[in-house]
Amino acid sequence: MLIRPKAGILDPQGAAVQRALPALGFAGVENVHVGRLVELDVEDAAQLEAMCEKLLANPLVEDYEIILPE
């Protein structure tokens, strides 16, 4: 599961990274956001959405995306 700060909410962590990259010579960097990745093995992938809603993400302030392996 990829968990990201919702668009439009101040993301100071992303902003700090965005300021740091040009200082290292990486030009043209915009819209940096820092989220988190939760990896797990589970038998029934149908549970993942409820896991995100209930615990892994805070839907008030974060969006999540469920990525299943090929």
């Binding site: 909410i9 101040l10 100071p12 962590q13 700090a16 805070n58």
Partner: peptide, 16 residues
């Protein structure tokens, strides 16, 4: 807030 007894959420301080 996490228990939804109160509205909203607490995010990292703007000054990190």
């Amino acid at each position: 807030c996490e228990a939804r007894l109160l509205p909203g959420a607490l995010l990292p301080n703007a000054n990190l």
